[in-house]
Simulated assay, not measured.
Amino acid sequence: MISAGAKCQTQREILEGLCFNTSSNAESNVRRGHKLLLQMLTQANADHVLSIVNALFAEKNTTFLETFLKALKDYQAEAILTDFHKPAEAKNQINSYVEKKTKGMVKHLLDSVDPQTDAVALNTFYFKGKWKDAFDKRRTHNADFHVDNKTVVRVPMMTRDGIYRMANIREVGCTLVAVPYVGHFSAFFIIPNPGRLQDVLEALKNDSIRQWFEEMKPIRIILSIPKLQMSSTFDLKKELTALGIKLVFSDKADLSGITGFKNLKLSKAVHKALVRMDEGGTEAAASSAGENTPTSLPPQAVVADRPFMFYIKDNQDDVDLFVGILIKP
């Protein structure tokens, strides 16, 4: 979004840091690609809720170029003026904007605002889907979740007997299970064996999960996963700086494509993600009717009762919407 108004080395740092090419048409190509992606992801659907909010808040005396405002539409984004010299009012304005845009799902995005702020870029992401085969609420029960060798907490554990695609990755020490949503989304749970969490995290750095997906096969299991709601807020300034995106946050920033002048820098970039996982309604008889399997072999029990990773993927477009790790519910 900011690259649409960045120029020269400031724009190159953004594109290179995010691994896009830096050809003469790079920014416009990136923008077209994101426009199509956002249109596909956010189209109205009764099966799930996917809310993506992008916005740029700038000091009240800022005058935006029409070309920049037009470019923001490709990111389904808005540019909004606020008075950062009144930090409490600015914070409330930004938080109220996000809460309204997400229909109350994402609240309190910012805890505070620095009165010296020039501009704040924000992104929020909320997803709630319906399981293709819902968990029966009557089977949800309190169970132990082992945070570590010394810490145990009680969690509501959802349980279901059914056929799921899964794989046991013995060389790393983890189990991978795919739980489909209605439509073309799936949640992939990566459950490390006791003591193997760091081994799994190291393997994921090498993108090993792509190979693991290929090893998955349908099998009848008794799956137990915690009912949960997770939210995480990230100050992207630290993360982006580590990727080499530095100028945009400095007094040397060239964001003249936003205002026409080199008098603006990005003070803060904030990302918040919210995921909810629950039973998804009462399991209907029809949900399990198509899962008849030979009963000579007892189903394997797969229990996410210790820290685990999860991916939520759009299978149709091969997009990872969320990548998360649950350490302590």
Rank of each mutant, 00 (worst) to 15 (best):
S3R: 05
G5M: 03
C8S: 13
I14G: 02
E16T: 14
N25K: 14
R31E: 12
T42P: 03
Q43Y: 10
H48R: 11
K60Q: 14
K60T: 12
L65T: 11
L65M: 14
Q76H: 12
A79N: 07
A79K: 06
L81T: 01
T82Q: 01
Q93A: 13
N95L: 08
S96G: 09
S96P: 04
Y97L: 08
E99S: 14
G104A: 10
V113R: 02
V113H: 05
A119Q: 05
A119V: 09
L122I: 15
N123H: 10
G129F: 03
G129E: 03
G129S: 03
K130H: 11
W131Y: 04
K132A: 11
A134K: 09
N142V: 10
P156K: 04
M158Y: 02
D161S: 09
I169L: 04
R170L: 13
E171C: 02
V172R: 06
G173S: 06
C174I: 07
C174F: 01
V177L: 08
A187R: 00
F189T: 05
P192A: 02
P192K: 00
E202K: 13
K205R: 15
Q211G: 13
I219V: 11
I222M: 05
I225V: 15
Q229V: 12
S231E: 15
T241F: 06
D251W: 01
D254E: 06
G257R: 00
N263S: 11
A269C: 13
H271I: 09
K272P: 01
K272R: 15
G280R: 06
G290N: 10
P294C: 09
S296R: 01
M309S: 07
I312G: 05
K313W: 06
D320M: 10
L321W: 06
V323C: 14
I325Q: 10
P329H: 01
P329N: 09
